[in-house]
Each structure stands twice: as C-alpha cells, then as structure tokens.
C-alpha cells in the first residue's frame, strides 16, 4: 500500500488506539520508518487524542504521584532472579547421553558463544546510540539556550526579588520584533507542591494591567531553567508570582516573587 492510502484508510488512527494485530502493527511501524509522511501523520493523530483525553482528566491528587514514586523507589534496586538449585539426580541419567553428544555439544557451544558475542556487540551498539542521542539532545538544549541569551535582538530585563522572597531574581529575554519571550528562572526557589510560577506582562499606565504570558510548569524537570512562554506584544514590566497549580486569572500580589521594568 502507498503512504497516502495508509493515511486515508484510517488504519493509522486504530494503530495509535492499539486496536490492530501484531502483524499489522509491525507493518505500520516499518512503514512509518520509511515514510516521513506516515510518521508525521501518526504523531499528529497521537497528539490530538492525547490532548482530547487529557482535557477530560478528572482531578487527581499530587499525593498519588508521590505514592507512585515511593512505590517504585522501594523496589528500585535490581531484582536478582534466583535460579533453582540444580538437582544432581536429574543429571545422572543424562550423563551418558551427554557424553555421546559431546562432539555435537562442543559445536553448539562454539556457535552459542559466537551468537552471544554478536548479541553483546549489538547491545553495546544500542547503548552507545542511546548515549549519543541523549548527549545530542542535551547539547541542542544548551545551544538553544545560549542562542537566546546571545541574541542581540533580545531585550534583557532583570527582575529583582520582592518582599516575599528578597533573594529571588529572574531574567526575561524579550524579542520586540518577533515577540518571543523566554524566562531564565534559575534564581527562583523550587515552588512548593501544588504551586506554580506564573509570568505576567504588565502595562503600567494608564492603569496597571497584568496579562498572563504563561506558567513555568515542570520547574524541577527543566534542568536549565530556561522556559519559553507566550509571545508578549506589549509590556512595560514583567513580574512572576506564585500561584496554585493551573495558574490564576489575576496575579496574587502577596506572592509576587520578582519584578522588573523594561
């Protein structure tokens, strides 16, 4: 089947839903490797259904996440499989036969050794490839961050700590042409459980008007602490407040961590 036929048939949706047979799955996975169109289509279908289902998720407690982590850490060490002790008697009967088959056995052993060696090399290769992909990914992240910081078109705004957290600081990189905005939040403390930092673009006159430009979600997971937020059209100042998970419609001024004028 041609790529477009695959796409139009609707089978890729069922592939993402997990409703196909193993043979069909393997066939499509191979097809996706060969055809970027098919691959892209699968990714888009998956994004759509993940977005749809996620938006229907009822509230579940943060405690649940902690419980799962605790359960996993308990059994974090490698499970060593116990092999049943071999029973002598079982083997006595076989010994004679084994002698006869020794010649053949030797051959098999050699073959297995070779196969093992090949498998080991294969495993090593996969490991190295994964290692490389990981480093490559880290490297790209760092490069991207460096580009943001270096970009001459970016206006850098330093946000200083406020009453609630005087030692906090942050930096905003705002490109006034493209409106893209990044936050360097390395100077903010880790947010408490169930809370999230929210970034606001502020207009100061004629009246103070805050506009939310995004949340610094997954604060812990972002090792570089550089976050992309929404485009900022207009701002005379930027502020960061601590808000309940999901963010707020208006900033909680008592929880204003950092603030800085453009």
């Amino acid at each position: 089947m041609e790529a477009q036929e695959y796409i139009d048939s609707g089978i890729l949706e069922l592939y993402v839903y997990g409703l196909l047979t193993e043979t069909e799955n393997i066939e499509i996975a191979e097809m996706a490797k060969k055809s970027p169109e098919v691959d892209q289509e699968i990714i888009s279908i998956e994004k759509a259904i993940v977005a749809l289902s996620s938006s229907f998720s009822p509230f579940h407690s943060v405690a649940n996440f902690e419980k799962i982590k605790a359960r996993l850490e308990l059994k974090h060490g490698k499970v060593v499989e116990m092999k049943p002790a071999s029973k002598w008697s079982q083997y006595v009967g076989w010994a004679a036969a084994v002698l006869l088959l020794l010649g053949l056995g030797y051959q098999t052993l050699e073959l297995t050794k070779t196969k093992d060696a090949i498998a080991t090399v294969g495993n090593e290769k996969t490991k190295i490839e994964r290692e490389f992909a990981y480093l490559d990914q880290q490297n790209k992240e760092t490069e991207k961050n460096l580009t943001i910081v270096r970009d001459i078109k970016n206006t850098g705004v330093t946000l200083g700590g406020q009453a609630v957290s005087p030692t906090s600081f942050a930096k905003v990189y705002w490109n006034k042409d493209t409106k893209t905005t990044y936050i360097d939040a390395a100077g903010l403390p880790k947010p408490p459980k169930g809370m999230v930092y929210q970034v606001w673009a502020l207009k100061l006159s004629p009246v103070l008007t805050p506009t939310s430009i995004g949340l610094l979600s997954d604060f812990e997971g972002n090792s570089n602490k550089i976050f992309a937020v929404d485009r900022t059209n207009e701002a005379e100042a930027f502020g960061i407040t601590l808000e309940p998970a999901g963010g707020s419609l208006t900033p909680t001024m008592t929880q204003l961590y950092t603030l800085g004028k453009v």
Partner: peptide, 18 residues
C-alpha cells in the same frame, strides 16, 4: 535519567487517568 519519570507522568498521566 532521573527526570524521565516526572516527564513521563506529566505527559501522559492525565490522558491515561481519563
């Protein structure tokens, strides 16, 4: 990577929970 589980949970827990 220690962040992997957090990412995994963030990305998919809502979808699976629904």
């Amino acid at each position: 990577d220690e962040r992997a589980f957090t990412h995994l949970y963030d990305m998919y827990s809502k979808s699976l929970f629904s």
